[in-house]
Amino acid sequence: MLLLFTYVFYCLTGCCDLTPSPLYERQTFRNKLSSEELRGNASRQGSVDGAAEEEDTKHAPSDSSNLSMANSFGSKELPQAIIIGVKKGGTRALLEFLRVHPDVRAVGAEPHFFDRFYDKGLEWYRNLMPRTLEGQITMEKTPSYFVTREAPARVFAMSRHTKLIVVMGRVQDFLGLKRVVTNKHFYFNQTKGFPCLKKPEGSSRPRCLGKSKGRAHPQIPSEVLLRLRDFYRPFNLKLYQMTGQNFGWE
């Protein structure tokens, strides 16, 4: 009994992660759980992490949440996709909605690695990431990368295959994800005036974005809208040529 109690206490303090079990033990344990069960654990932890994140942070994030037992499967990887912008373009909503997908694991807070904390190194950055299983995508979002001159070269130096997301089109298609996030995951919140996530699995309440989100749009005169469309039309056409996709913003 004393040996068992010592082992349980040892694991609860997080020390088990520092001394990985032999390969044959890990394979035996993984064989007892299907990949769907493991993904369910990861998805539920993502919902819990997201429920605690009400506002974007401007400080260096902490990876202490990664010590939870539910997030002990898989490995930490550098992100394969990063939401880079634009500010106030719905990036927080996009991240929260993508985290509903079982194949997406994302950091809740903005890491600001490529603009503020680059000197801390890639291992520091990697340690901020949640653990992922084979076939899952690691993501983060920091809109200020979009306006940081050094960010493109730094991301490219990390990986030329990392996908950069600017809120414009259908992101699930861009990431190659199976379409599982649909209207059934949302309800329209009359008080806030925008859709919220229905009660996520593992949470006791629905998930809505924070108080700073969902600002009322001003009424813009039609002649002003026409002038704006005329002004941005050549820039839109250039974007269509660069991306090879027509977003239909005429």
Score class of each variant (00 low, 15 high):
209 L>P: 01
250 E>Q: 05
151 A>K: 02
94 L>S: 10
14 G>C: 02
35 S>E: 01
71 N>E: 09
133 L>S: 12
94 L>R: 08
230 D>L: 12
198 K>S: 09
192 K>D: 04
142 T>I: 00
157 A>S: 04
159 S>P: 09
66 N>G: 01
206 P>R: 09
208 C>D: 02
104 V>D: 10
87 K>P: 09
221 P>S: 04
238 K>S: 10
17 D>A: 05
157 A>F: 00
50 G>D: 15
70 A>Y: 10
225 L>E: 14
166 V>S: 06
28 T>S: 13
131 R>D: 08
123 E>F: 05
233 R>K: 14
158 M>H: 06
80 Q>P: 08
211 K>W: 06
3 L>K: 15
77 E>M: 03
9 F>Q: 03
134 E>L: 01
221 P>F: 15
217 H>W: 11
89 G>H: 00
57 T>W: 11
230 D>F: 07
34 S>E: 12
45 Q>C: 05
57 T>K: 12
238 K>L: 14
111 P>G: 02
85 G>W: 00
190 Q>M: 09
88 K>P: 01
245 Q>P: 13
96 E>F: 05
31 N>G: 14
15 C>H: 11
21 S>P: 14
32 K>I: 15
95 L>R: 12
101 H>F: 06
52 A>D: 13
28 T>D: 13
182 T>C: 01
70 A>E: 13
58 K>T: 12
126 R>F: 05
187 Y>C: 03
58 K>C: 08
75 S>E: 07
15 C>M: 14
10 Y>W: 02
51 A>S: 14
